[in-house]
Write a protein that binds this DNA or RNA. Structure first.
Lengths: 249, 249
DNA sequence: TTAATAAGTGTAAATATAATACTTAATATT
DNA sequence: AATATTAAGTATTATATTTACACTTATTAA
């Protein structure tokens, strides 16, 4: 008990800080990547654009806080959510020294609760036409996009942005939006179908073309099963040129 | 001014937290990967083993804090240091709610100041024979090792663990320690020499064998130059088997 | 019936990776 | 002086992967 009080003293000598989480919330409307941002209703930076965020409370982890904020804003639980980076520059927040743990989320844009989103002054913007955001939020978004590009190659997380049922053209357009470049249809299909993780539902979605495109589902169970025997998801796309002697001989 | 005070009120409604940094400090003794840990001289967990850490102060970023701790402990500045992950579980620290931002460092074990290290009750342990560490520090180390394996393939950071001059066998032993497996000498040499980033000094290090092994330097300037024209460091080693239809047909 | 549209498909060439064993330089030993 | 020892250093062939590339098909609308 005396120990406990010594401990407390030891800790109490140190500074404490506001700890916030900021959420980079990605969505996909079938054509382009979207980001959910808000017009701030409070100071500092009233009326400026920012990511959705909030403070971490004593009784919750940062992940809890991010989930809480996502639920409040979108009505969605069990969202794909990943810690991105912890931003700690002393003056990053103009109001008070605050460290921010950035998380990025992938959600199905059409499953989010429109009313909740609107009530929070939030709205979806095209990633390519995103207004300037406050503080270091632009840097957060850029870093999230980088991370997304890494992840899309090495984990099958793209499906979090799509409906349960999707077509291969849907999937390709999503990847093209993320990497901001076109892929050859034949190569793209082969590398995805080659994983054996897509279940052809033998039903056509006729909304996108006259011929219609087959609907697929992602076989999550098979993914887990293969992962557990040491096989990994890894698409041979968007490989960056490598330093090689012949490349500059 | 009234605005400012409203801001302050808004922030002051929220909890503040102790924010620590913990450093996963890697070294290499020519044979195996080492970790710098300490025997704690204070509560909680007096005499238990832990990573080196400290609290983030009001006037410094987390990176500043990590650098400060590294300098105090090893006498080294300008160390390779990278943010790993922010650990925020509510009960991760038994003494008080503390969030910890973990950083990993790569240092040349022989450049660290032995006296300083000893005075801090710190010492190097073989990664394969590391005692149980306090709190979530074991998880931090495992995550750092994972990150290291990713990074060693995609960035030439291994050289931070070696002397300025090194032999190809030195480098290979280091990679073998990190990936915990043997590499074929011919493949390993080819993939490194193939980058064109190693300068053969045409001087032999005779300490390791009768024949001697040529000393090399990493050509950092060339690395930056190639990086800037869009060529990337990427070694084709330790590729994980990929999910493919034929693999389980 | 035909025109239009996007979906869907296969093969060959080039490149990258993996698998493999012997030679060489220097030192230590007899 | 000859020989044994040790780890360093080297090249080729087979296999797998990646890239490049153009036509056919299913359906709807005119």
């Amino acid at each position: 008990m005396i120990k406990q009080s010594n401990q407390e003293k030891f800790y109490q000598e140190h500074d404490r800080h506001y700890v916030a989480v900021d959420c980079i919330i990605f969505g996909f409307d079938g054509n382009s990547l979207k980001l959910l941002i808000q017009k701030r209703k409070f100071e500092p930076e009233l009326n400026a654009f920012s990511l959705m965020g909030g403070f971490v409370k004593n009784e919750e982890s940062a992940m809890d806080a991010a989930n809480r904020i996502l639920l409040q804003l979108t009505g969605l639980a069990d969202v794909y959510l990943e810690q991105l980076y912890c931003f700690t520059n002393v003056n990053r927040d103009s109001a008070a020294r605050t460290i921010s743990i950035a998380y990025f989320a992938l959600i199905n844009i059409y499953q989010s609760n429109k009313l909740l989103v609107e009530n929070h002054g939030a709205f979806w913007v095209d990633l390519n036409h995103c207004p300037k955001l406050i503080f270091d939020h632009d840097a957060m978004v850029q870093l999230a996009l980088q991370r997304l590009r890494l992840k899309f190659i090495t984990e099958p997380i793209a499906f979090n942005l799509l409906s349960n049922e999707f077509t291969l053209p849907n999937l390709q357009i999503l990847y093209e939006a993320v990497y901001n470049r076109a892929f050859d249809k034949r190569l793209f299909r082969r590398c995805f179908l080659g994983t054996g993780l897509l279940i052809n539902l033998n039903v056509k979605d006729m909304s996108g073309s006259k011929k219609g495109a087959f609907l697929y589902q992602f076989d999550h169970a098979k993914y887990v099963q293969l992962y557990n025997i040491g096989l990994y998801f890894n698409l041979p796309i968007d490989k960056q040129p490598r330093m090689k002697v012949d490349k500059f001989k």
